[in-house]
Amino acid sequence: MTDAAAALRAEWTKARTVPDLPLAILLALVGTTSVNVLTGQPSAGLQLGQAVIAVAGVQILAGEYSTGLIHPTMLAFPTRWPALLAKAVLLIPGAAVTAIGNRPRDAVYLGLIALLGLGTAALIRNAVTAAGVVLTVLFVLPTMVRWMPDPDWATFLYRASPSPGHLATTAAWTAAALLLGTITLLTRRVS
């Protein structure tokens, strides 16, 4: 547990000493709130916010693969899981802040989306590809719904897409990504 605490402290220092994560959260917050105000639809701003938050979730891990920073991180935590856990713990409140002004469940949703990004980054490691895959899950599945002529298929696809309305589905996506990502992170060689 002391490892986890040390990792959390280290990750907190990492997060606050470069502008990436604070900037992303600020962008998500401003974007979500302004779209909400402009359209009067609380769910519209969330579409923008979730994209930013998902990418922030990817960035916090995959960004380390791009800069090579993953090496010192892995040297500091050779068991690897404390670093992943610390990143996850840091992301959740950061994501939830974005939903200020939305319903409380939207905060939960954004937390899950951030973790979906993190899990995907652990699985795919290339930052752009991981972000593209997460954004595909978030945005492409819903656009496919209207092409589905069969109502059963359309309903299935709709229910299978992560959305603020389906926290359970979203949690399933996140859990799958985190599980596969963690296994990959723990077993594969570091870039």
Partner: peptide, 12 residues
């Protein structure tokens, strides 16, 4: 300095 700081924190 911040780079070394987070590393130091990670090792207590």
């Amino acid at each position: 300095r911040n780079h070394l700081l987070w590393l130091a924190q990670s090792q207590r």
